[in-house]
Each structure stands twice: as C-alpha cells, then as structure tokens.
Amino acid sequence: MIRIARRSLVAAVAASALVSGLAIAEEVKPAVGRSIVVASTTSTQDSGLFGHLLPIFTAKTGIEVKVVAQGTGQALDTGRRGDADVVFVHAKAAEEKFVGEGFAAERRPVMYNDFVLIGPRSDPAGIRGSRDIAAALRAIRGKGVAFVSRGDRSGTHQAELALWKAAGIELEAAKGAWYREIGQGMGAALNIASSMGAYVLADRGTWISFKNRGDLDIAVEGDTALFNQYGIMAVSPVKHPHVKAADGKAFVDWMVGPEGQKAISDYRIDGRQLFFPNADQPGA
C-alpha cells in the first residue's frame, strides 16, 4: 500500500512539476493576443487614470497594455534596459535626455495636471490659501516645519527639487530633521505626511483619489510653477530590436490623437477633472 502511495506521490510530483514547467513555458511563448509593456509613474496608476484609458484603447486596437508603475527615474531606466515598449512619465528634462541618448526617437507631450502643496489644516507654516509656492517653501524652511520628500528620483521628486531651487533655497545646505526623504511612492508619502502632520508636494490626481487624508488638505495651489507636464515615448527598436515598436507607436499615437485626448479629459473623480490633454501644444 505504502509502495503504491509512494508511486502515486512521485507521479503527482512529476505531474505538478510538468504543469509548473508549462506555466513558465506559457509565459515564454509570445502571448496569443498582442500586448505591450508601458513603464509609467505611480501617480498615473494611483490616480486611476489607466483603469479608465486602457480598456478603451484595448477595445479599439486589440492590444493589451501592461502597466508597470514606478517612479519616473526607474521607469526611464526600465525603458533604457529594453524592458518596456513605451515610457509615459513626467519629467521633461529627463525625458529629453532619454531621447538624446537614442532610447526613443521622439517625445510627445500628452497632458498635464498640476502639483499641489498639501499640509495639515492647523497650518503651522502659515501658508494656507497662498498661490505663491516659492514663498510657501521659504516659510516652511524658515520655521523648520516638517516636510516629506519623495526622495526617489520620481517626476514629482524632481519637480520638488526644482521648486526649492526656484525659491532660492540651497537644499543640500538647508536639509535638517525637518526635511524627511522617504524614497517611496506618492501614496506612501501622503500616508506618512498624514500621520505626522507634515507638508508634502503631490500631484493633484493622486491627491484627489487618495483616501487616507486624515487632517491633510491643500495648502498651496494655482501657481504656474506647479504645472506638471506628462510626456510619452515609444522605446526605439534601434537600441532594443525586440521591442514591439509598431504596437508601442500605436499606443503613443492613440494617446496623443483625438480619441486618447478626449478619454483623458473625460476622466473624473467626484466630478473633478484630473488631467488636461495638451498634445496639440508644441513645446509642452
């Protein structure tokens, strides 16, 4: 009996090994349907924009879009390594560098939203309601009020660094206990700011869809310096011959075309528009 039991155990193990082998092989084979990998940012994913856009695109083209949400810096690296077919991020200078290195033929502007400075309602820096981000940052620095920085090379992090610079603050010199670099995504930064009553720079999309607000609210908004532009690039098949260049380009073209642009402006949470299409605005 035991002998039989052992034999069937061996058979079962062999069978399941075969099955998992097949499971892996199935992943190795090209998928039956067409699909592309898009490296994008946590802000686009966390805001729910992709959940709205992708079904529309897939229904029209039959191309499935797999989104890997990372910080802008990491998303660009993923593109550089050839692990994504399209990169969709928000850090114009870094994107132009990506094109300059030959990893993409061109960068197309897609849409913008804006950054907002989030802070506790008690407003220890006394900046609430201001439209001047530079003055607000100087006040935070001056009073040494807690500020949470993404610290992850993301688009939002890079925008934040540019804002400090524009406010005339040498961050490297000014850094202290008040300045908390967390090295995590937007949602994590908001969670941390919420729990410790700190200020934090966030993209409006993530802020609107963020649920664990606690005592947080918008402190500063509406400054033109808080403008947040998104760009999209198909990874060049010259550098990485295996990329799905045609399907990647189809996605880029759709995003900057009339249907994609309309779908972007249609996306709302609680009746509020999160992203504003501007592919027709050269130089954006």
């Binding site: 946590t42 989104v67 890997v68 949400a69 949602g187 994590a188 869809s209």
Partner: peptide, 24 residues
C-alpha cells in the same frame, strides 16, 4: 512582476498598492 493589473498583481502587491493609494 511589476504589479501589472490582471497579469502580475498578487495579493501582496495589491496590498502594497492599496496602501499607497491610502485605501487602508
């Protein structure tokens, strides 16, 4: 895995994602 919705999203990566979205 990349936490791709519908493809490589597991229970733990979903937990991490929902935490970052603030939906505790």
């Amino acid at each position: 895995g990349g936490n791709i919705a519908g493809h490589t999203r597991t229970m733990t990566t979903t937990i991490a994602l929902e935490t970052s979205k603030g939906d505790l």
